[in-house]
Amino acid sequence: MTSPAPTSARDDVAGARAGLGERLARGAVAVVVAAFAGSMMTTHPVVGVGAGVLALAIAAMAVTGRCLGTSCAPASAPSPPPPQNTLGYPEAHQRLDVR
């Protein structure tokens, strides 16, 4: 039996979905942010609305077990390492001969 094809960029990453503990933690954070949003609505409605939107996003992440947006997705390919020792001087990660 074959595994189903990934439906998004995050499905092919091992551990893409959050476990129960992480979901509960996200839910608790969503409740705290929602309480903050509710308390700010009377004095600073702009801040309250912004916090409410964030609380909704965090709650959606808690329910689905996924991170919203591409900012949490891993890079598609790692960048190549910088060139080593381009000036000809010994570097700290190389063996140094102090004579």
Rank of each mutant, 00 (worst) to 15 (best):
P78R: 01
A14F: 10
M61E: 11
V98N: 06
A37V: 02
T7Y: 08
G52Y: 02
D97T: 08
R26D: 00
A35K: 08
A35N: 11
G50I: 08
H44V: 12
R17E: 15
G21N: 09
C67K: 13
S79K: 12
V32Q: 12
M61Y: 00
S71P: 04
R95A: 12
G50V: 10
R26T: 00
T70R: 09
P4K: 09
G65Y: 01
V31R: 00
P4I: 03
A30L: 03
A16D: 02
T43I: 10
A62F: 02
R10A: 07
P90M: 01
T64I: 03
S79T: 11
G69I: 01
Q84M: 07
P83G: 08
T43C: 08
L96C: 11
M61K: 01
T64W: 02
D97G: 10
P80G: 06
A35M: 14
E91D: 07
V31G: 00
N85R: 15
L20I: 12
T86F: 05
A51I: 08
R99T: 14
H93N: 10
A34K: 01
N85G: 10
V46T: 12
A75E: 12
D12P: 00
T42D: 15
V46D: 13
R23T: 08
E91L: 06
A14V: 12
F36D: 03
G21D: 09
T7C: 09
E22N: 11
A16C: 11
L20E: 15
S79E: 10
G50S: 11
T2E: 05
G21M: 06
P90H: 06
A62S: 11
P74E: 14
A51C: 15
G19S: 12
G88K: 07
A77R: 06
C67S: 11
A37K: 01
C72G: 13
G19L: 04
G65S: 07
A73W: 07
S3F: 08
M40F: 08
A60K: 03
C72R: 14
A73F: 06
Q84I: 04
V29F: 09
G65F: 00
S3V: 06
P81M: 05
A75R: 14
P45I: 08
Q94M: 12
C72V: 03
A57H: 10
E22R: 15
L96P: 08
V49H: 09
M40V: 03
A62G: 05
A60E: 05
T42R: 15
V53N: 01
E22C: 09
